[in-house]
Amino acid sequence: MSGVAQQRLAQERKAWRKDHPFGFVAKPRCLPDGSVDMLHWDCRIPGKANTPWEGGVYPLVLKFTEDYPSNPPIASFPKGFFHPNIFDNGRVCLSIINSEKGWRPSITVKQILMGISDLLYEPNNDDPAQDYGYKIYKKDKGKYMRLVKEQARKYSDEKYSTI
């Protein structure tokens, strides 16, 4: 393993193993030959208790490039994920992972996942990414909560809770 990105991600993995939020998962992808792809991480974000997201374990992929940490990773939920700040293709719209807004090379994987977790519960009305989710969130909170609870049930399946 060589390069700044690879070294930084190895350090991030080591730090994550020592200290990560309960219920969260973040690990580099294993390739068929048994090697590790440090540039693609499979993650899980647990739904926060006492919110409509509770019970879900939300799959997220972090894709890094060789110019990390100069540039942020791309964070994506599955295509069609329901949320005002998630594009239809699953890509997360969040300032701390946007190189033109809030990205800084000092931001860690842990901070990214915590930021995305917070965004799930507290959508950013000033930066909508998904028209459908945004309109429902703004106009019909009851329907929004029902759709979030449906999604939590969808992602409570065991296949989403383990990697």
Rank of each mutant, 00 (worst) to 15 (best):
Ile112His: 01
Tyr155Met: 07
Val109Thr: 13
Glu66Met: 07
Pro84Asp: 04
Gln130Asn: 15
Leu39Arg: 09
Lys139Tyr: 02
Gln11Trp: 04
His83Pro: 08
Cys30Glu: 15
Gln7Trp: 02
Ser99Leu: 00
Pro78Ala: 00
Pro32Thr: 10
Tyr155Val: 09
Gly3Pro: 09
Asn98Cys: 03
Met145Asn: 15
Tyr160Gly: 00
His40Asn: 12
Gln7Gly: 03
Pro32Trp: 10
Leu94Phe: 10
Ala75Glu: 03
Gln11Pro: 00
Pro52Cys: 07
Asn124Asp: 15
Gly3Glu: 03
Lys149Asp: 02
Val36Lys: 12
Phe82Glu: 06
Gly56Ser: 08
Ser70Asp: 12
Arg146Ile: 12
Ala75Arg: 01
Asp19Met: 04
Leu119Lys: 06
Trp53Cys: 05
Lys141Thr: 12
Ser106Val: 14
Glu122Lys: 05
His40Lys: 11
Asn124Val: 04
Glu122Phe: 04
Ile112Pro: 02
Pro78Ser: 00
Trp53Gly: 03
Tyr132Arg: 14
Ile45Gln: 02
Asp118Trp: 08
Asn125Ile: 13
Ala129Val: 07
Thr65Arg: 08
Lys159Val: 11
Arg13Asn: 08
Asp157Tyr: 01
Arg91Lys: 14
Met114Leu: 15
Asp33His: 05
Lys159Arg: 15
Ser106Tyr: 02
Gln151Pro: 06
Ile163Lys: 11
Arg146Tyr: 10
Pro21Arg: 14
Lys138Pro: 01
Asn50Tyr: 06
Asp127His: 10
Lys110Trp: 01
Ser76Trp: 01
Pro32Ile: 08
Arg104His: 09
Asp157Met: 06
Met1Gln: 09
Ser106Glu: 11
Phe24Arg: 07
Arg146Thr: 12
Lys138Phe: 03
Met145Thr: 13
Arg8Lys: 13
Lys48Leu: 12
Ser35Pro: 03
Tyr137Trp: 15
Arg44Gly: 14
Lys159Met: 13
Met114Asp: 03
